[in-house]
Design a protein around this nucleic acid. Structure first.
Lengths: 112, 112
DNA sequence: ATCGTAGTACGATGAATGTCAAACTACGAT
DNA sequence: ATCGTAGTTTGACATTCATCGTACTACGAT
């Protein structure tokens, strides 16, 4: 049975704080960074996060419910993509700068 | 007595995720938005948040520890300012777009 | 029909977070 | 020295959060 259709917030329901919260977590930020990099629909299984499957599911849901990603089922896979156009319209430059920042931080030597 | 000097992270210690996390909370985002708007040092008491004093203290600390704001004591007041130059150098465009987004969201009709 | 792969649902759990009130400290002004 | 204002500290509390394992469903392929 089937919740084969996934709930997504409408553009006008997307809240800045929810988006920032969604992005403020390493695994989720990595998903977003990856989606931005490849620029196409990507199955959950293609991105390997350092967490269990169930935790992964949780993170994807947070991203979707915040309005950051779009998810559709295709066969057994669930394809994810960035809601770039909508986010850009809503918060111009935000996603670009977050992704650029994530890329930079990735390249930066980590002080630890 | 006195921790009259406040600990701030060095620029290279500022982590993107911590910044995003700091910004992902309404009261804290409001502080940042306000600081950006007035563009000068502002005492905690000048920004009225809808929370108690102790909660306020907590939020300011989160912002400072994330590297988002600078805090210095002056007399009985504690002055806050955005670490704009440093954040801009680290994550170009990020703070600008977050603030622009916060301004927009503020103006947007809230669906509730 | 059976199997494997992809992902979900369901608790559960421990850590982090936002919140507050109350008692406190620091400083300037009177 | 006393008072008021500004902010802190502490301890408590409820909520949210990230995490996991296990059992489950959905679908394609054999």
């Amino acid at each position: 049975m089937s919740t084969r259709i996934l709930e997504h917030p409408d553009v006008e329901e997307i809240r800045l704080e929810a988006v920032l919260h969604a992005l403020a977590e390493p695994a989720r930020l990595e998903v977003v960074r990856f989606l931005a990099e490849v620029g196409r629909e990507v199955a959950c299984s293609e991105i390997d996060l350092a967490v269990s499957k169930s935790t992964g599911t949780h993170h994807y849901r947070v991203l979707r419910e915040a309005g950051v990603i779009n998810q559709v089922y295709r066969g057994t896979a669930k394809l994810n993509s960035l809601r770039r156009a909508e986010l850009d319209a809503l918060f111009p430059g935000l996603i670009d700068s977050v992704i650029a920042a994530a890329d930079r931080e990735r390249a930066r030597p980590r002080p630890s």
